[in-house]
């Protein structure tokens, strides 16, 4: 893949992730979604960079703001949207919903409604891969809030001790639900916690697509070589509330304005044009094809059958 192809592919995935959220919010406002939704806006660069830096046999054990990674890793917009809407055509048959997207084919495992509980699961997948002697890498995502869980510390310690093929990705969006992170921790950089386990901690600017991609690529290939885990802190900013409908009384509007002006999706598009990687019409047609994919996904999810109540009594035991 040459650089032009790579960057266009990158932009397409960013654009898809952002506009998937827009479609989801419209459906939510129309009362077509079951449960809550947690906006992924501001997290797109992280998910897209990870998916592009991973191989198809690598695993992701994500948190609740990783829809950009699911889509970029190959889960179809149809399957993802249908699942969030509780439809039988969703990747988990409509029983999982927004917080529990799992997919064996694209190797998405273990997201949970209990934040930070996915870290031990990721550790186990990495351990099993090490036992099997393959070169599969596990990526595990969580927020800065999740890094305050005991599970984070237990897992980083064991992953470091056993040099497991795993990359820890802290998506620091500066808010822990309704609370700015500085009210929960003395440190500003979660990456510093890596030194407590004698592993490498790296900070990436998650509003800078290429920097973030290169950082993940480095950490993933390091894990694949057998050189152990890395803690990457991807600094971002949650552009929306904790969940859709959050009035965000705790947010400083000036701060939001600062970040919005740096919106990486707008910035990345401008760089493609400025560096003559693509022209307006190429990008317009790429964007139109994304909107077509989303339109088809919405139609598909709307007309799909909701999970039957009788089916919710199944699958308690294998």
């Amino acid at each position: 893949m040459d650089m032009k192809e790579f960057k266009l592919n990158y932009y397409e995935k960013l654009y898809l992730a952002r506009h998937f959220e827009d479609e989801l919010m419209k459906l939510f406002a129309d009362n077509k979604v079951v449960g809550w939704i947690h906006s992924n806006k501001g997290h797109e660069v992280i998910g897209v960079s990870l998916a592009l830096a991973m191989k198809s046999h690598d695993y992701i054990v994500p948190h609740h703001r990783d829809r950009p990674a699911y889509l970029a890793k190959g889960l179809s917009a149809k399957s993802l949207l249908a699942e969030i809407m509780g439809k039988t055509t969703g990747c988990c048959g409509g029983i999982g919903g927004e917080l529990h997207i799992m997919d064996v084919e694209t190797r998405i495992y273990g997201p949970t409604g209990v934040l930070g509980s996915n870290l031990p699961i990721a550790l186990g997948i990495a351990y099993a891969n090490k036992l099997a002697g393959n070169d599969h890498v596990v990526v595990c995502n969580f927020g800065e809030g999740g890094s305050n869980r005991g599970s984070f510390h237990e897992v980083l310690n064991m992953a470091a001790l056993w040099s497991l093929p795993i990359v820890f990705v802290c998506e620091n969006n500066k808010f822990v639900e309704f609370t700015p992170m500085q009210k929960h921790m003395n440190i500003e950089d979660v990456a510093r916690r890596a030194s407590g386990y004698d592993i490498e901690g790296i900070i990436a600017d998650a509003f800078n697509p290429m920097e973030t991609y290169e950082t993940f690529k480095y950490a993933i290939e390091k894990a694949r070589r057998g050189d152990g885990p890395t803690l990457v802190e991807a600094k971002t900013y949650r552009l929306d509330g904790h969940y859709e409908g959050d009035p965000m009384k705790y947010r400083d509007e000036e701060e939001k304005k600062y970040w919005l002006e740096r919106d990486p999706i707008i910035g990345f598009k401008a760089s493609l044009l400025n560096e003559s990687i693509a022209n307006e019409s190429e990008l317009e047609s790429l964007e139109a094809s994304v909107h077509q994919v989303l339109k088809e996904a919405v139609e598909f999810a709307l007309k799909s059958e909701p999970l039957k109540v009788s089916d919710t009594f199944k699958n308690v035991y294998a």
Binding site: Y109, S117, L119, G124, I125, L131, S151, E154, V155, M158
Partner: peptide
């Protein structure tokens, strides 16, 4: 590796089993 001593990390090792079990 098949008989693994672990640190005092009950949640961590139980979750380790969940993850390893998930992939067979």
């Amino acid at each position: 590796w098949r008989v693994k001593d672990t640190p005092i990390s009950e949640e961590g090792i139980t979750g380790l089993a969940v993850g390893a079990g998930m992939i067979g």
